[in-house]
Amino acid sequence: MEPFKVAAKSDPNKVAGALANTIRGDNRETVELQAIGAGALNQAVKAVIIARGYLAPSGVDLLIAAAFKDIEVRGEDRTAIRLTVHTR
């Protein structure tokens, strides 16, 4: 599955809902978020925190593992941050 691409202007509540629904609905143990830039990373982290609140009543907790990922955007090489969200 492709990572969720999070931008600085992304609504963290909507990203959190998509993240929680993917984990619940698809019974997934990992979901990836991809962010380029500080603003996008901020929104991605907020989304994971919000999703944790959505999933906590079901007994699901979330953990994040972060890594750099070299990608190409419109012909330019960029460095993204890939957040792998694990359930426990």
Rank of each mutant, 00 (worst) to 15 (best):
T84K: 14
I49S: 09
A66F: 00
A80F: 10
V73T: 11
T87F: 04
L33F: 14
A40I: 08
K5E: 11
E76V: 07
V6A: 02
L19E: 05
I49D: 10
A7F: 05
R24T: 06
L83G: 08
L63V: 07
E29C: 08
E32M: 06
E72S: 08
T87C: 10
A8R: 01
R52V: 13
E76A: 13
A80S: 14
E32Q: 10
V85R: 06
A47I: 03
T84S: 14
F4K: 01
L83K: 05
D77W: 12
D77R: 15
D77S: 14
G75P: 03
R52L: 13
S10Q: 06
V48W: 07
A18F: 09
L62Q: 00
I81C: 04
A44D: 07
D11K: 03
F68P: 01
R74V: 10
N13F: 14
V73E: 11
G25F: 08
H86P: 01
A65T: 09
V45T: 14
T84N: 09
K5M: 05
R88A: 11
Y54K: 01
R24V: 12
R74W: 00
A40D: 05
T30L: 06
V15S: 03
I49C: 06
R88W: 09
A8M: 09
K46Q: 07
E72Q: 02
V45D: 10
R52G: 15
E72L: 12
D61S: 10
A38S: 09
E29V: 06
A40R: 02
E32F: 01
M1V: 04
G37E: 00
T79G: 13
E2S: 04
A16C: 10
Q34V: 05
D70W: 00
